[in-house]
């Protein structure tokens, strides 16, 4: 089974279809990448290089924007993208004790 799926042709992210294990090697658009850390089912991987401030496209629509330059194959999550509407709550940000 393919590990990654593209949900919409306009997307710049792949979705992890089956958890990528630590140190597993995956081919992303023909580029072999070794993932040091586990990346769980459902998470996003950049399908191409994405510039800082560029929209992240999933389901063919923008779901936020990049807060730094993201290289093809990189895991995309809270550390490198943000909502363009309302900030995301995490346990680390709880009650003003921001990391």
């Amino acid at each position: 089974m393919e590990k990654l799926i593209l949900l919409h042709p306009a997307d710049n992210v792949f979705i992890v279809r089956k958890t990528i294990q630590a140190n597993e090697k995956i081919s992303v658009n023909g580029i072999p990448i070794i993932y040091v850390k586990e990346i769980a089912l459902g998470h996003k991987i950049a399908s191409r290089d994405i510039n800082k401030g560029e929209e992240i496209i999933k389901y063919g629509v923008p779901i936020g924007s990049a807060t730094e330059k993201i290289v093809a194959g990189a895991h995309i999550h809270l550390h490198n993208m943000k909502s363009d509407y309302i900030q995301t709550y995490t346990l680390e940000k709880e009650f003003g004790h921001e990391q």
């Binding site: 769980a40 089912l41 992240i56 779901i63 936020g64 809270l78 995301t88």
Partner: peptide
């Protein structure tokens, strides 16, 4: 977020 969702959009 643990489950891979990053933003409300």
């Amino acid at each position: 977020a643990d489950g891979g969702l990053t933003t409300i959009e």
